[in-house]
Design a protein around this nucleic acid. Structure first.
Lengths: 199, 199
DNA sequence: CACGTAACTGAAACACGTTCTATTATCGGC
DNA sequence: GCCGATAATAGAACGTGTTTCAGTTACGTG
C-alpha cells in the first residue's frame, strides 16, 4: 500500500541531522543567489553545494520558489529580531519610518543579486507557495508597523504600515529590474511617507 | 558575413502580414492565458494557435515574459482609451479614484486566469523586458492619474496616483495567489484612498 | 521578370525545474 | 543488536522555455 509520505512537515524537523541539512540548503541558496541572482540558483547547484541529493532538496522544499521565499523569510526574521531589540531613533512616526526604510533599502542595495533573486521569487510565487509568501508578507507588515515605534499601533497605524510596505515592494521590483535607481526609490519612499503622515 | 538580424524592431512592422501575425500571436496568448493562466501559455501552444512557427514567435517576442507583458500593455491601452473617452463620475478626487479602482478590480476579477498570467509575468520580468514593463508601469500611472479627473495634475496628484498604483499592484499579486479575497482588496484600496486623500 | 535578402518554417537540440526509480543508510521501537 | 519504516542517494527521465539550423518562401529592387 502506498502511503502519502509527500511533503516534509513544517519546521518540525526531527533529528539534528535534518535541521542541519535544512540549514545547509538555505545557506547554499543564499550563497548562490548572492553570487548570481535568481538564475544562478539552480536546483542541481543548490543540492550539490548543500551536499544533498536532488531528491532530498525537493523533499525539504517542493520548488525553487518555496526555497527562495523561505530564504527570504529567514533573512527577514533576522532583520526583525535586530529591529525588535534596539529602539528605533526618531522623534516622529515619520522620522522613524524613514530611518527604517533607509536602513532596509541600504541593506538590499548591499547585495543586489540576492535581492533580485528573492524579490522575483516572492513576486512570482503561485498559490502552491501561498503559505510561505504569506509569512513574508506578514513579516513586512510587522517590520513597518514596528517602524512606527508605537507600543500599541492603532488600526490606522497598521493601514499606513501596509501601504508603505506595498509601495516599498513595488519600488523594490522596479529597482531590481533597473527601471528605478536607488535615488528614485528613496525619493518615492520619502514622498509616500510625507503623503501618509502629516504630523 | 553574418549580419545581425536579431530582434524585430519596435512596433515598426512593415507589411500588413506582419502586423497580422503579431496580432494573431497576442490573441492566441490572451486566449490561452484566459483559459489556463500563466502555465497554459506555452510557447509551442501559442505558436500553433497563432499559426506561426516557433522560431517566428521568438522573432516577434524574445521570451514568454515579453509576450505576456506586451499583451498586458495592449489590454491596458484599451482600458486607457475607454477611460480617456468618457468623463469619470464622482464629485471628489477620492470618489473618482474609487470609481476607477472598482471598475478595474471588477474587470480583473472577471478573468482570473488572464489576470494571473499577466500579473505574474509583469512581476517576474527581468531587466531584458524592462522596456515592456516600464511601458506598463507608465500606463498604470496614467490610469490612476486620469482617475483623479484633473486637467493638470499637480506633482502631489501624480505622487498620489503612483502610490495607489503600487498598492493596487501589491493587492493584485495577493489576490492572484489567493492570499487576499476580492473583498480584502476592495477594503484595502478604499482605506488607502482615505489615507491619501482627505478632501 | 530575375535576383538577392530577409522572413518564415519545421524540426532537432539544449537547459533547467521537476519527477521517478532503484538502492542504500538511518532511526525508533522491540 | 535486529526489524520495519522512513529518509537519503545517485542517476535517469520528462516537460517546457529557448536556441539553432537547414531548407523554403515572400518581398522589394534593379
Amino acid at each position: 500500500m502506498a502511503a502519502t509520505p509527500r511533503q516534509i512537515a513544517e519546521e518540525e524537523l526531527g533529528s539534528s541531522a535534518q535541521r542541519d541539512r535544512r540549514r545547509r540548503i538555505i545557506d547554499a541558496t543564499i550563497a548562490l543567489a548572492s553570487k548570481g541572482g535568481f538564475e544562478a540558483v539552480q536546483m542541481r547547484a543548490v543540492a550539490e553545494r548543500a551536499d544533498v541529493a536532488l531528491g532530498t532538496l525537493y523533499r525539504y522544499f517542493p520548488s525553487k520558489i518555496h526555497l527562495l521565499v523561505s530564504g527570504l523569510g529567514a533573512q527577514l526574521e533576522r532583520a526583525l529580531d535586530r529591529m525588535r531589540r534596539a529602539p528605533i531613533p526618531g522623534d516622529t512616526r515619520g522620522d522613524r519610518m524613514l530611518y527604517v526604510l533607509s536602513r532596509i533599502t541600504r541593506g538590499m542595495q548591499r547585495d543586489p543579486h540576492l535581492t533580485e533573486a528573492m524579490t522575483r521569487a516572492f513576486m512570482f510565487a503561485d498559490t502552491s507557495a501561498a503559505a510561505e509568501v504569506d509569512l513574508v508578507a506578514r513579516q513586512i507588515e510587522e517590520l513597518f508597523t514596528l517602524a512606527l515605534g508605537k507600543e500599541e499601533p492603532s488600526e490606522e497605524d497598521k493601514a499606513v504600515a501596509r501601504v508603505i510596505g506595498d509601495v516599498w515592494l513595488s519600488n523594490l521590483v522596479a529597482w531590481v529590474t533597473r527601471r528605478a535607481s536607488a535615488t528614485d526609490v528613496t525619493n518615492r519612499l520619502e514622498l509616500t511617507v510625507r503623503l501618509l503622515m502629516r504630523d
